[in-house]
Computed example of a mutant assay.
Amino acid sequence: MEFSQKNTPHSPSYSFWEYDIWFRDLDLLVVGGGITGCLTAYFYKQRFPLAKVLVVDKDPLPRGATLRNAGFLCFGSVSEYLDDAANHSSDYAAALMKDRFEGLQILKTLFETKDIGLKIDGGYEVFMPSETEVFEKCLYGLREVNQIFGNNNVFKATLDPELKLGLPKRHKVIENELEANIHSGKLVREIHKLLQASGIGVLHGISICKMENIHDGVVLDSSYGSFKTREVVVATNAFTRDLLPELNVYPNRGQIVVTSPLPHFKRAGNFHYDAGYFYLRHLEDGSVLLGGGRNLDRESEQTSDLSVSPVIQNALEKILREVFLVDEDFSIAHRWSGVMAFGSENEKAPLVGTLGNIHYIVRMGGMGVAMAPITAKRFVDSL
Rank of each mutant, 00 (worst) to 15 (best):
7 N>P: 06
9 P>H: 10
11 S>T: 12
14 Y>A: 14
14 Y>D: 09
18 E>W: 04
18 E>P: 03
24 R>S: 14
33 G>K: 00
37 G>Q: 01
39 L>Y: 07
39 L>C: 13
40 T>K: 07
41 A>N: 08
43 F>V: 01
47 R>I: 06
56 V>D: 05
59 D>E: 14
66 T>C: 02
72 F>R: 01
76 G>Y: 00
81 Y>A: 12
83 D>C: 12
83 D>N: 13
84 D>N: 12
91 D>F: 08
95 A>K: 02
98 K>N: 12
100 R>F: 03
104 L>N: 14
106 I>T: 07
107 L>V: 11
108 K>E: 15
109 T>H: 05
109 T>Q: 07
117 G>P: 04
118 L>E: 06
119 K>D: 06
124 Y>I: 06
126 V>P: 09
133 E>G: 07
133 E>W: 03
144 E>D: 15
146 N>H: 10
146 N>W: 09
154 V>C: 09
154 V>Y: 04
158 T>V: 14
163 L>D: 15
164 K>M: 14
164 K>H: 13
166 G>C: 09
170 R>S: 14
173 V>N: 00
182 I>F: 06
187 L>D: 08
189 R>A: 15
192 H>F: 13
195 L>D: 10
199 G>T: 07
205 G>D: 07
218 V>H: 08
218 V>K: 05
221 D>T: 11
228 K>A: 15
235 A>W: 00
236 T>G: 04
237 N>F: 04
244 L>T: 10
259 T>E: 03
260 S>I: 10
262 L>T: 00
269 G>M: 03
270 N>I: 06
275 A>P: 02
280 L>D: 00
281 R>D: 00
283 L>W: 04
283 L>F: 08
289 L>R: 01
306 L>R: 03
309 S>Q: 10
310 P>Y: 09
312 I>E: 13
312 I>G: 11
313 Q>C: 13
315 A>V: 04
317 E>A: 15
318 K>F: 07
318 K>T: 05
318 K>M: 05
320 L>C: 07
321 R>V: 09
322 E>W: 04
324 F>C: 01
327 D>S: 12
328 E>T: 15
331 S>Q: 12
333 A>L: 12
345 E>Q: 12
347 E>I: 04
348 K>F: 04
351 L>P: 06
352 V>D: 12
353 G>L: 05
359 H>S: 14
362 V>A: 12
364 M>K: 05
364 M>E: 14
365 G>M: 00
369 V>E: 00
373 P>V: 06
376 A>P: 01
376 A>N: 04
379 F>T: 09
